[in-house]
Amino acid sequence: MEITYIAVALLLGLSALAGALGVSLLGGKFLEGAARQPELVPVLRSQFFIVVGLVDAVPMIGVGMALYILFAG
């Protein structure tokens, strides 16, 4: 049972870390691009939206698996 909790904690923690790293790197690049060419902010906004969706997909699956192990395992 304790092993299960450790596994869930690892899954959630690593998912959070990966998502946070990806989104923060992306946000930094977005600000760099916006500072360089402010007129492109609307285009960058759409591209940023798409890539955020790509980045957080795998952490979301990890969170789902962790919750499944926690509640149904």
């Binding site: 998502g19 989104v23 946000g27 977005f30 600000l31 916006a34 500072a35 402010p38 902010v41 960058l44 906004r45 940023f48 939206f49 955020v52 957080d56 979301m60 969170v63 789902g64 919750l67 499944y68």
Partner: peptide, 23 residues
Amino acid sequence: ARGVLVSMYASEIGKMMLVVALF
């Protein structure tokens, strides 16, 4: 750009919380 970033981060947090609550 700052407003876009803030709204994106706030939405991302909300999305994650919704996913956790629904699962």
